[in-house]
Design a protein around this nucleic acid. Structure first.
Lengths: 200, 200
DNA sequence: TCAGATTTTCGACTATTGGTCGGTTTTTTA
DNA sequence: TAAAAAACCGACCAATAGTCGAAAATCTGA
């Protein structure tokens, strides 16, 4: 890695942290360069604009999460569990969660939404592959796989914005997931413990 | 209506138009007051901040769409058709659609997302009432009504962002809707013509 | 080793923007 | 009709994204 590339990565990490901590709009370029200890010109030598920095930060985040998801897809695991694991792996990582003060839901709409949109797009082919596996294995039974996967991902991205889940939400989500993919009732019921224990 | 209230409404309309035409971020307060022919101080006499103006604009839009939706709920109509009609009435109105250049999807994330969020929240009780009707009438059969309605609304808000629908999307959407609400297969199939003819 | 080119860095400067404030005009009230 | 309240004005401020020409550091090849 060249010198220049190193600096860019360093700036990216700083920007990433600050965008998540304080929100994209509430983070000024001046603050970023102050923390990095560089001059304005240097920053703009690496990034054409602040928004491009955001885009790069999102790329970084997406790549990490997609990599995790791909591992899960490749790993041997019962199909229903794999579906859950892929979705689970797409959540914002540990770090984001702990840092995030303003980040989720109310503030930082731009980052949040851009990230979710990209996440859904990138995840569709991955999760579709798993569902296709499921169809072959007989656990699932559905057509329009990509479209159904998209719906599930959209639901998840919105539902998981809130930190806590109600009993009814979980129940409905499990039932809907089974029905969307044409699975036998109970196929996804293990998700209840997963959600209640792991996240909620 | 007092003089002051008139001016406020006038400003609101101007802001609404500009936010939709050019996006919230790309509309400056200076532009708004220029178009309104007033001074900075006057603007801030009516709105504490630019963001409050956005909030007020969204309120305005929400109220209109909720009013339409309420009419639909109250009107006599077969339940499945009513479900479709309520959802349909929540789309951004004619005007928005025609004005909107940058508005949808790519730019104007803030307005778009805040609006959608509010729309889902406000629509849940309305659509839930219809579904409850449907349960009593025997066309639907489901529990966790609010939660299922929320899912449908989320799916719609994301799916209808794109102007065009694929055959597969429509097929999957119809099937999913029926299954989420526990309706007989075919119950919602009329939606196909509705979407293909009316929107797509 | 050294000159010339390339890459990287610098920071003063600009334009735009959201927002403030003290004062003026208009309208209402009594 | 005079005092009070409401509405309005625009100069001013602080913050902020982005520019630019020049300087410093690094690399190149002879």
């Amino acid at each position: 890695m060249k010198k220049g590339e190193q600096r860019k990565q360093e700036l990216l990490k700083i920007a990433y942290r600050m965008f998540i901590e304080k929100g994209y709009d509430n983070t000024s370029v001046d603050e970023i360069i102050a923390k990095a200890g560089i001059a304005k010109g240097t920053y703009y030598y690496y990034f054409p604009s602040k928004e491009d920095t955001l885009e790069a930060v999102i790329d970084m985040m997406i790549n990490e999460e997609v990599a995790k998801a791909k591992e899960v897809v490749a790993s041997p695991m019962p199909i229903p569990q794999k579906v859950a694991a892929v979705i689970y792996s797409l959540r914002p990582g540990q770090e984001e969660q702990s840092i995030a003060k303003v980040v989720e839901s109310n503030e930082n709409i731009v980052l949040h939404e851009k990230l979710n949109k990209r996440l859904v797009t990138e995840a569709i082919p991955l999760l579709s592959e798993v569902v296709r596996e499921g169809n072959l294995a007989g656990v699932f039974n559905c057509e329009q796989i990509e479209e159904r996967v998209k719906m599930i991902l959209i639901i998840c991205s919105k539902l998981f914005d809130e930190a806590d889940f109600t009993e009814n939400e979980v129940t409905a989500f499990i039932d809907v997931t089974e029905k969307i993919f044409g699975a036998q009732p109970g196929t996804m019921s293990f998700v209840r413990e997963l959600i209640m224990g792991g996240i909620g």
